[in-house]
Design a protein around this nucleic acid. Structure first.
Lengths: 198, 198
DNA sequence: GTCTATAAATCGATAGAC
DNA sequence: GTCTATCGATTTATAGAC
């Protein structure tokens, strides 16, 4: 008997399903991954999926939550302990190469979004998650601006939108073309964080 | 009897199929649109699709070609006859609102890309088309730099990558959230085209 | 080249047993 | 809560008639 209450066991089932779904969704795509595959590969049957999620879409949202928190955490960690703009930009360039260079997550992001386009509820759920991510980026920008004493050319909110857009766009291209120049990510940030001449 | 040789009539069939496919792919998405629907709505049957295309993917590529040439043409036209940086940026801001504000095309772009990720041939086809678009943007940047006498902060090639990435990323978000700030497109370009201080 | 008919396969979702 | 069995609905792609 594995330890834990019923609630704990169910939580483990849910986590296992999300973990496997994440792996398969990233590797093969959302549409191309069947719930049966997810369930079996996690050591359960399809019924277990429907006992823990209302359907495929809710499982997809759970996977997105998993990914989002990881991306933001990684970017924040990359900026930690940097004391100059150059150091910070180098760290962010590394983040871009590391996370956008293996960009299955942006492909999943947009695939899921496009599939959910006709479901108002899911579309709103995803849009809300994007807002959360942009706010997290905005906080990072504020933090960087304060610590590095730079004078950004645009409000942090706009920079956050630009950063997320670049991440999605670069990742989408990179998923098809390994030759994409990911260094434009940090290069753009440099232009936005250094005040323009007057 | 409608005029034309056999070749001309078939060309019209092909055009009609691409035109309807474009409309439906944009409206409902690539995966959610069946070939049967495309054929019937164009006044043909599914057999006509397979007589003119090897399958759904090739039809998708034909639609992308249609869209790409239109987007680049529109952006070039928007820049035409502008003599100052501000005028040009205003025109590009308008382009962004017009084309990214109705962003089904980026959603289609990335949906198709993510679906085709596991087909090497199609993936390479799409990547090649992206390269063509980036080169077209690069040419526009060169033209703008020469005519407006600005000193870009980055090579035109990098700016082209940034512009396409922003377009894809902004469009993807906008397809889910009408509140996305599209003006960051022109704002970013302004920061890239004005030389940084030093 | 186009149409009709059909094959062949897939998958999300549900019902009922345990 | 999980499993087994199955339904029901789709869709791509093909075969053969015209």
């Amino acid at each position: 008997m594995v330890a834990g209450t019923r609630a704990e066991r169910q939580a483990r089932t849910r986590e296992a399903l999300v973990s496997v779904a994440r792996e398969l969704f990233l590797r093969d795509g959302f549409a191309a991954t069947s719930l049966d595959r997810v369930a079996v590969e996690a050591g359960f049957s399809k019924g277990a999926v429907y006992s823990n999620f209302s359907g495929k879409e809710e499982l997809g949202l759970a996977v997105l939550d998993d990914l989002h928190s990881e991306q933001v955490t990684a970017a924040a960690a990359a900026m930690e302990g940097k004391h100059t703009l150059d150091e910070t930009l180098d760290a962010l360039a590394w983040w871009a190469r590391e996370h956008l260079g293996q960009p299955k997550w942006t492909a999943l992001e947009v695939e899921f979004a496009s599939i959910a386009r006709h479901n108002r509820f899911v579309a709103e759920q995803i849009a809300a998650r994007h807002r959360v991510v942009r706010e997290a980026i905005e906080a990072l920008v504020h933090k960087g601006v304060a610590e590095l004493d730079v004078d950004p050319a645009l409000p942090a909110e706009k920079i956050a939108t630009i950063v997320l857009s670049l991440s999605i766009g670069l990742g989408a291209q990179r998923s098809l073309d390994a030759g994409i120049d990911l260094d434009v990510f940090a290069a753009t940030l440099r232009q936005l964080l250094i005040p323009r001449p007057e």
